[in-house]
Amino acid sequence: MKALVAALFLTYLLVGGAEAQRADICDVPGYLLFGESELGNVTKSVKEKRRLDIMIFGSASSTLGGPEGKAYPARLEATLKARLPDIEVHITIHAAPRQTVTDMWNELKKIIREQKPALIVWQTGTVDAMRGVEPDEFGSVLNKAVENIQANGTDVVLMNMQYSPRTESMIAVGPYAENMRWVSQQRGVPLFDRLGVMRHWSDTGVFDFYTPTKAFSVAQKVHECIGRALATQIIDAAQLGPMAKVAQ
């Protein structure tokens, strides 16, 4: 049995490793990508209306202090505009610090009555994990919320927590990440596995998340990479590859 596990694990590493052997440091190995999920409303909006409205709905980790335009939402917008030059791309940001998924959904309910973006990128989980909200409740609230948003004709991409080795022993993010994966499978929505992606960058030495620093430069590079990776995955999932320019 152990040999089987070892063999499977090795295959998994090799497959993941082979995919990772591309030049860009921001690259994400295949097993961390969206997979089969599609973004039908994004495809439709881009193909029929030539425009793409995205709302980033997140907590404090969807923002970054320091100069404007360096957090991942702005990097996502810049990348999408560069890769889809004929499309009008608009990104709005709602970043509410210290909100659990229940608080967020109460607010989002009101917002989507007035606005109807093609896609909502919903970043959540960290606050719930810090507060110790029951993981099951977290999952079921999120599941119901995503179902509602989908019924509203809007696509959803879920984004989980950051990989944070220094606080790993204080914030048990695991159960919340599992619940987000479960919701993404239940509702057929893509999951941007920020936790897995950042851990991959840490393991492969792309970024050092251990060392203390007051400088914004590392954080900005991380957000740049997240924005670019997210843009690529949205383009792939919405099957916009043929009309998009190749990433620079």
């Binding site: 202090g65 606080t167 914030i171 590392v218």
Partner: peptide, 21 residues
């Protein structure tokens, strides 16, 4: 342990996570 981490670790990337302290 965490009081030590709180006083020694700083990174703008983790402003939110440090809220756990």
């Amino acid at each position: 342990e965490i009081a030590y981490v709180a006083s020694s670790f700083e990174n703008p990337l983790y402003a939110e996570e440090m809220g756990v302290l």
